[in-house]
Write a protein that binds this DNA or RNA. Structure first.
Length: 936
RNA sequence: GGGCGCGUAGCUCAGCGGAAGAGCACCUCCUUGACAUGGAGGGGGUCACAGGUUCGAUCCCUGUCGCGCCCA
């Protein structure tokens, strides 16, 4: 018995449990051992995360694919798991410590702190997983992994060590993006450029050997800078070698103000004569460009900042006593001052000394940390790097060769653009939470990289010739390092598991465009490097980690704004699920997803789709009320009733459309087709047209209609399941109470594979009935006719007369018609309808307002004439006749014929209207074919 | 500066070479025996602008103007 109303909140939890108990989502089901494998790895959400709309979209897409392929009989693995999210998680726990007024991370010590993080993970790390389950995600939850669990850590170790041994991982001292708040290096990708209003300071650097005189430009050179505080670390001034203004100064020196250091004026093309003063200060330790200039000219790198971005002179070793200016004692007082305070102080002093020529307002792009949101400092440190430029080569080639395809394709341009300009990937982080780098140092700094401490020790002992104490590298790896291994590490690599054998490479990756670089690109690199297919007697074949990459875009709020906590416009998917149900949310997202647009999501949209779920529910109730129970072995091909043959025909068409759309990742087309089929075909017409039979006398027709109604509903439930898994699974269960037993849960049942149900005759007949009803309804509404009216078929063929009698019941009820009769010609004073070539007349003499009808006919007449003129223009054009395709010319001729016929009918109707109250109306073109399938 | 994308009905978006589409919103009517979370009908668009290619352009090309995003 189907409940009166569908309550998602009551049903969804129960269905989830049922799936879990049945192990419905388990990969490697024995009965599917021979089936094709289908696999997707989930983009692992951060353990700290909670479900947001982006997750909801991303995971619904994957779930649709997995449920679809599972129903198609494949052995599906949707591999779930979470990411340890180094910085994010460490921040969460540190904040918690602070809130609870407990000792901070450093006071606690590394080991205890990590214990604390694990405890936090045990307690709170499952949140996001439970939320994904509420969404309906059909992951194989028994295989859930975590980027820091034992197996994945083993994979990380192996990859690090092997890449190191191949020379693809190395340690280097160079500038990194340093986060002075989190006190760690970060990768280029974690740096967000923020346009900031600032200033451009023009500073005068006195030229050596001249007495500085603010009035005499020959005694100084002006450099322009946005970061005056870094001048303490300047080691040169650069001018363009061809710049006539400065050419003569190249090779001379300036005395760095406040410090007294003697630094050279060099010629380098980096200096842009158009910008600022044309001369720039060079600070190799604090600017990426200056670093390169410094390397070209062999300049010292003088770091003047601490890790917290405070002024230090500790490394300022270039103060020979004879170079120290009298000012330096004063300058030294800046030690320990924050960079921005130091900037003010330095500018103030320079101004006092007359060394500031001018200050211009200037907008520039300042790098900020995406986590800490503080200004990132280019900072000279030792870090570990991956030689990405090398690893990227096959990753580019595979996409070029089409081994992996982006959907939509245009993302390939973005991918290539980045991959071809890739920089070394800085993978070390000065954090505690993460995979500690497997590198140990001897007393002399010699590094030993190994899979274990013992192995490193052995190597070291051999190297030193005696047992030597080693110290492990304190740093951990970038979180994305382990994520890059996700497609194979989750399947058990480096062990040779049967899962790897069966489910790798994966079928498709579904992800947002924002992590193409962070994640997709790196999985390509690592996957190609570590997962080649061995071929005995031949070079190993390169295997891509996924065949397709489906890229989706953002979910925005109803007004198109990006959802963000600070704006307060975040729509919580769980709140939506509570209110409308997971199915409504999922269906809304699937109907709206478009490759080239972000999704705008408003509550109204979700409500509409909740209404769709209700509609489906009520259709099922109707079927049940009418005793339409599934019949064992029912074959829709055997149906005799035209109506039943018609719905079978339509069901096959809808199934084909939905299947083709999902196969090609056109999710909104698939959802839209399902929506229209259920609502506009099954509910609006099949249910309505079947009522006379279902409520009529018992007999074979009624039996067949019951069986067909139940069969078609069953197909609908299957077709909708990938999109709306809960309500469909519930209906599957409820409808199983009667009729033959179900073999399996819906999630494991067969996807409709319909054939041989196409029936043009049935389509023509039912289509005609539908068009007739629609046409009559249209007239009624337009003429404001509430009364029940009669219909007369004018000059109809015997077949049509026969047909209309067969459908008389339905026509009477749905079009509110009193009786249907036939006559040779339309009775006087009737409105004429042309329905698929047949004329139906409504005798309405004295009932309708004829002036309104006259106006309408005049308008129709204009339209018909315009159509004829337009077609004639084509047909009279010799070029068109000569060059257009034959079938196009044919079509135009048919159009002309149709329009001419229509015009004649309208003229006739108008004439009769003038003559004495006889109204004749030709149905406007766009209404003559209200139903064929294209309308649905 | 380089790249990608978008300007189609009031709103959100399909269509991408042969007569302008959907959903929502809006207006009118309907307590018809699954559903008012419903049913029926209707109005509404020089497809951003300007050139070009074509027998024919919302659709292809070029440019202009707006609006996003990514990279430097």
């Amino acid at each position: 018995m189907i409940e009166k109303t569908y309550q998602p909140s009551e049903v969804e939890g129960r269905i989830s449990q049922a799936w879990e108990q049945a192990g419905a989502f388990k990969a490697g089901r024995p009965e599917r051992a021979q089936a094709d494998a289908y696999s997707i790895v989930i983009p692992p959400p951060n353990v700290t995360g909670s479900l947001h709309m982006g997750h909801a979209l991303n995971n619904t897409l994957q779930d649709v694919l997995c449920r679809f392929e599972r129903m198609r009989g494949k052995d599906v693995l949707w591999q779930p798991g979470t990411d340890h999210a180094g910085i994010a998680t460490q921040m969460v726990v540190e904040r918690q410590l602070m809130e609870q007024q407990q000792p901070g991370r450093r006071d606690m010590g590394r080991e205890k702190f990590l214990e604390r993080v694990w405890a936090w993970k045990a307690e709170s790390g499952g949140t996001i997983v439970n939320q994904l389950k509420r969404l309906g995600a059909s992951c194989d939850w028994s295989r859930e992994r975590f980027t820091m669990d034992e197996g994945l850590s083993k994979a990380v170790l192996k990859v690090f060590v092997e890449l190191y041994r191949e020379g693809l991982i190395y340690k280097d001292k160079r500038l990194v993006n340093w986060d002075p708040k989190l006190l760690t290096a970060i990768s280029d990708l974690e740096v967000m450029p923020v346009e900031t209003k600032g200033h451009l300071w023009h500073l005068r650097y006195p030229i050596e050997g001249k007495t500085f005189n603010a009035e005499d430009p020959s005694t100084f050179i002006v450099v322009a800078t946005t970061r005056p505080e870094t001048m303490l670390g300047d080691s040169a001034v650069a001018v363009h070698p061809d710049d006539e203004r400065y050419k003569a100064l190249i090779g001379k020196h300036v005395i760095l103000p406040l410090v007294g250091r003697r630094i050279p004026i060099i010629g380098d093309e980096y200096s842009d004569p158009e910008k600022g003063s044309g001369a720039v200060k060079i600070t190799p330790a604090h600017d990426f460009n200056d670093f390169e200039v410094g390397k070209r000219h062999g300049l010292p790198q003088i770091n003047v900042l601490t890790i917290e971005a405070k002024i230090t002179f500790a490394e300022n070793v270039f103060h020979q006593p004879d170079q120290v200016s009298a000012d330096f004692e004063e300058t030294k007082k800046l030690e320990g001052l924050d960079r921005f305070a130091a900037r003010k102080a330095i500018v103030a002093r320079l101004e006092e000394m007359g060394l500031v020529e001018k200050i211009e307002p200037h907008t520039n792009v300042v790098p900020h940390g995406d986590r800490s949101n503080v200004v990132i400092e280019p900072f000279l440190t030792d870090q570990w790097y991956v030689n990405a430029a090398e690893l990227v080569k096959p990753a580019i080639a595979m996409v070029r060769e089409g081994k992996t395809s982006f959907v939509p394709k245009n993302w390939e341009a973005t991918y290539f653009n980045w991959m071809e300009n890739i920089q070394p990937w800085c993978i070390s982080r000065q954090l505690w939470w993460g995979h500690q780098i497997p590198a140990w140092y001897g007393p002399d700094g010699k590094v030993f990289v190994a899979l274990s401490e013992a192995e490193a020790q052995t190597e070291a002992d051999k190297h030193y010739g005696q047992t030597t104490a080693l110290k492990r590298d304190e740093d951990v790896l970038d979180t994305w390092f382990s994520s890059a291994l996700w497609p194979f590490s989750t399947l058990g690599w480096p062990d040779k598991t049967k899962e790897l054998e069966r489910f790798y490479p994966t079928s498709v990756l579904v992800t947002g465009f924002d992590i193409i670089f962070f994640w997709v690109a790196r999985m390509m690199m690592m996957g190609l490097h570590f997962m080649p297919k061995e071929r005995p007697g031949a070079p190993a074949e390169q295997i891509v980690p996924f065949k397709d990459i489906y890229i989706h875009r953002l979910v925005r709020d109803a007004s198109g704004a990006k959802m963000s906590k600070s704006k307060g416009n975040v729509v919580d998917p769980l709140g939506i699920i509570d209110e409308f149900g997971a199915d409504a949310l999922r269906f809304t997202l699937m109907r709206a997803v478009a490759p080239s647009h972000d999704i705008r999501l408003g509550p109204q949209d979700v409500e509409n789709n909740r209404n769709f779920a209700t509609k489906l529910w009520n259709a099922a109730r109707f079927v049940e009320f009418n005793g339409a129970v599934r019949v064992e072995g029912f074959d829709p091909k055997s149906a005799k009733e035209t109506l039943n043959r018609w719905i079978a025909h339509e069901t096959q068409k809808a199934a084909a459309e939905i299947t083709a759309a999902i196969e090609t990742y056109r999710f909104s087309d698939a959802a839209g087709a399902a929506y229209r089929f259920v609502w506009n075909v099954y509910c609006d017409w099949y249910v309505e047209l079947s009522k006379p039979v279902l409520t009529g006398a018992d007999g074979p027709a009624k039996d067949e209609t019951r069986a067909m109604a139940a069969w078609a509903l069953d197909e609908i439930i299957k077709l909708l399941h990938p999109f709306m898994p809960f309500i469909t699974e519930e209906l599957w269960a409820v409808t199983a109470e009667q009729g033959p037993k179900r073999g399996a849960m819906l999630a494991l049942s067969d996807w409709p594979a319909l054939a041989g149900l196409s029936d043009d005759k049935a389509e023509a007949e039912i289509g005609w009935v539908i068009d007739l009803i629609t046409a009559i309804r249209s007239i009624r509404a337009e003429m404001n006719l509430n009364a029940v009216i009669p219909v007369v078929l004018a000059g109809a063929s015997a077949t049509t007369q026969d047909l209309v009698q067969r459908w008389a019941d339905v026509i009477k009820r749905l079009a509110r018609v009193s009786e249907i009769s036939s006559a040779a010609t339309a009775p006087a004073g009737s409105v004429q309808l042309v329905v698929r070539g047949e004329v139906a007349a409504l005798p309405l003499k004295g009932v309708v307002d004829l002036s309104a009808e006259r106006a309408r006919l005049a308008k129709e007449m204009q339209k018909a004439e315009a159509d004829i003129v337009r077609v004639d223009a084509k047909l009279n054009n010799p070029n068109f006749m000569a060059r257009a395709k034959e079938e196009v010319v044919e079509e135009e001729k048919e159009k002309r014929e149709e329009a001419v016929g229509r015009k004649a009918k309208i003229a006739e109707a108008l004439e009769r209207l003038q003559g004495g109250g006889v109204t004749s109306l030709s149905l406007p073109r766009n209404r003559t074919r209200v139903y064929p399938s294209s309308a649905f």
